[in-house]
Every structure is written in C-alpha cells, then in structure tokens.
Nucleic acid binder design. Structure first.
Lengths: 252, 252
DNA sequence: CCTGAGTGAGAGCGGTGCTCTCGCATCGCG
DNA sequence: CGCGATGCGAGAGCACCGCTCTCACTCAGG
C-alpha cells in the first residue's frame, strides 16, 4: 500500500502489522469471529497482548480492518469470476458470480460469519465498511442492468398492475444506488430492482442456511443446490441461460 | 410441565429454574447470544455464579434450553397465525405465516440471532433441537401442499424439462420429510419442493438482512418490503392471492 | 551525542466459564 | 423424633478475555 519504508523501525512496523493481520485472519477462519481473541493473536505472533495495541488501538479496530479486507476479497472474487465472460453472456455472468460468491463463503466460513452473520455485540461497523460491503450487490445489479438493456424482463408480480405503483418508493434507495452508479445502462423497471434485491438476499440466505446447518437433511449436494437456486433466480429476473454449457465452470 | 411439587425444596427448585431461564431470555433479548453471560444471569436472579450450576450443568445446557424454547415459541406464533384462516385460503395462510415469522424475529432479535445467526463457537446443538427447528418449514410445506392439492403449480424452472430429472434426488431429504408427515395430501412435484425450500431460506435471509443491517439504505419500510417478498414467493409457488384483502392482517 | 519518540514486557483491573470445597438447610427413612 | 443422606448457596480459585498503565530499552533525527 505505502512506499518502501526508509528506516528499520518503519519496516518492522509494517511487517508486524501484516503478521498480526495474518494471524488474526487465520484465527478468524478456524474459530469464527466471536472467538477471535486479541491475546491469542498476540501469542501467535510471539508478542505479549499489550504490544498489539501499538499497532491496533483496540480489538474493534482490528475487527474493522478484517471486515474491510474480507469485503474487498469477496468483491474481487465475484467481480473477477464475472469479468471472465463475454459481456453479452448475462446468463453465464450471473451463474459465475453466484458460484464465486458461494465458493468464497464456503471456503471461509469465519469470514462469512463476520460479514453476514450475527453482528458482534458492542461493535458498530464504521463508515469505511459500507462501500466495500456494496460490491457484490453492485456486480449483481450490473448483470441485471445489462440483461435488462438486452431485453430481459422479470416475471410479473402477482396481483396485477395496480398495487405495483406503491413499490417504487419502497425500493427508492436501491434504485438511486443503481442509477447513480450507472449499473443499468438502459434504465430498470421497479420490478427488476425488487427481484434483484430478493435474489441478493436469497443467495446469502442460502449460504447462511448451508453454513449454519439448516439445510442438513433436506438437500443433498449443497453446491448443486446452490446452482439450482441461482438458475431459478436468473429465470425470475428474465436473464437468459448461459451461452455455452460449462462456460461458468464450477471452480470458483 | 410437571405436577405440583410436594416439598418446599422441589418448589424452590422449579421457581428458581424458571427465574434463571427468564433472566437469561431477558439478557438474550437485550444483548444477543454471544454476550449471554452466566454470571450476569446469576447476578440478575440474586445468586452467585456457581449456584446456577445446580440448575444447569453448563452454559451450553442453558443455551440448549433457550434454543428449544425459542424454536417452539416461533413455531407456535407461525402456526397460530396461519391456523386462524380458512383452510382453502392458502394465499391468506401463506401471507399470515410469513408475517408472523418476521414479526416474531423482529420483536426478538436476540432470539433470532440464537436460532438463525452465527452458531456459538464450541457449541453443538443436541438432537432435541432438530424437531422444534423444523416447525416453521412444516407449516410452510403444509400450505404449499394444500395449495398444490387445490391445483396450484409452481412456475417452471428455466432450461426446460431435461435437467429437472436430476433435481429429484437433490431434494430427496426434503421430499421424504414432506411425505412422511403428510404435509402434501395430493403429492407434490419436485419443483414445488425446490421452490418451497427456496422460499424458506429467502424468508429467513430477508429477516437476516433486515436485522443485521444489510438492507439499510436500499429498502424503505422493511415490513412492507417483507410483504412484497412474501407475495412474490407465493406467486412463484402458484399459491393464489389471499381471499379477502386484509384477511391476514399485519399485526401478529 | 542526546533528546524524544517508538516499542515490548509486565503488572493489574474487572470481566468471563467452570470446578471444588465447605457449611447449612432440608428431606426421607428408621 | 432423630439421624444420615442429599440439595443447595457461597466463596475461593483456575485460566482465559479486553484493555490500561508503567517502565526500560532502542532507534531516529536534530
């Protein structure tokens, strides 16, 4: 991030900060966020606990750093998986994004719990975390926007047209979010916004159910189950099938 | 639960057990599961911490009891809300069940976190918890089963008929669950099972996003948003609209 | 060189889950 | 009724936690 340090002290500081973060991430992955102990991290890097406070003012600050890093890592994973496919292959991009999302979460259950599980009591995420937190939904909205521009239309909401007028201001925040970032080049009808938000929470809800044990006994291969979910969500959004079978391969 | 205690000692034991559970639930609601401290509970009931171990062998045992009680309470809430409507009004029953589900979770975020949030590190839920944990999905499956018997059909999966054959064993566990309990009197096609499981995780995923702060800024009135989600899920399952508007009123 | 900043170690505070012992109250049986 | 057995609350203690403070030491820059 920063330039090469001049002094030995600055170099040591950078190295140790890195080591602390690495050790903390390792503990986060093995034990989960609630069990993340600053003292244990200190032991792992061969320090006494009070020395860690030279590098992070509090456990919460360390947590915030981990939070941001994880959001960015997940965002990278989803973005890169989706970027590998042709822009017009919205179906392939959707499936690739969904699979990358799940693959990252399943490989790092501790990180997932930190990002999408129960908030740590007494910890309030600072503002710096909200922008990285929006990266996944931005990718999803981008795919939906491209598909919409290419003619994809979501399944109509039940109950006809009358009640739908009121839904507009319900998702006004999400709509302006999409518009301001230019994620939907050809505009986006409200129903697409609604279905995108639904798909977003469905995808993470499914991962949550998988990782937290609620799917045990109901669904066999959870990876394949996730694929089925993703395909149906795409269908509800009017996103066409992937151009070539296997184009969004299952390695994430 | 048990008969009237004979001795003063047995009565005291029952009362104190109740008091400990009540205090624990109060702390659970205010601080969340991770911050649930046995010592704090002991203080609340005017005991020293070691005395609590006369009533619960460990913090985990107390947690298990809270877990079961909460599952039952949620199950009761959803069941009762749905039972108030006419059997043939599957649309009304669906909406009522969804609303009761969310209402319970929003009113008790701590309990929700315990049931559907990050698992407590080092705690494995014993077998006694799995049956109460299935009550919500049983209610949902029952409504879908009734609707299916009345002719409701889910929206077809994208990609046509060919790939669907393989989905059968994917949700074999859920299917036998439904069949064994007689939840679908007229049988149930695989696609309905898939969409029911999706709806189930969508409903809890939406609550999770709401309570854990991921919906902030995107959706205005979260209660109304939840209604919109529930209505679309019903539509995807082929469940018809509620018989009378307002039949499944929003209190609950 | 020497002053000041950066740094690590250690002690200590109040909190946690949990174990063990001790003394008292209560209960059931002879 | 009395006595042994059991139930129970309190307290001390163990190892852990986040965090603060002090002290000694090292390093960098004027």
């Amino acid at each position: 991030m920063s330039s090469t340090p001049r002094t030995a002290r600055a170099l040591a500081r950078e190295t140790l900060t890195r080591q602390i973060l690495d050790a903390a991430r390792a503990r986060l992955r093995s034990d989960g966020p609630a069990a993340l102990s600053l003292r244990a991290v200190a032991r792992d890097v061969g320090m006494v606990s009070s020395a860690v406070y030279r590098y992070f003012p509090s456990r919460d600050a360390l947590l915030t750093r981990l939070l941001i890093d994880s959001y960015e890592e997940l965002g990278d994973a989803v973005e890169q998986a989706e970027a590998r496919l042709a822009r017009e292959d919205t179906g392939g991009r959707w499936l690739a994004a969904c699979r990358a999302l799940r693959a990252w979460c399943v490989a790092r259950p501790g990180d997932f719990a930190l990002l999408y599980g129960t908030p740590i009591p007494g910890y309030a995420a600072p503002r710096d975390t909200v922008e990285p937190a929006t990266r996944v939904i931005r990718v999803l909205a981008g795919i939906v926007g491209d598909a919409y521009a290419a003619g994809a239309r979501p399944v109509p909401a039940p109950g006809g047209t009358g009640a739908d007028a009121g839904v507009g201001d319900l998702v006004a925040g999400a709509r302006t979010f999409v518009v301001e970032r230019g994620l939907a080049p050809g505009g986006l009808e409200t129903e697409s916004v609604v279905r995108t938000l639904m798909a977003w929470s469905q995808l993470f809800g499914t991962v949550s159910f998988e990782l937290f044990g609620h799917l045990v006994g109901s669904v066999g291969d959870t990876g394949r189950w996730y694929d089925e979910v993703a395909v149906r969500l795409a269908g509800d959004l009017g996103i066409p099938a992937p151009l070539e079978a296997g184009s969004a391969d299952r390695s994430g």
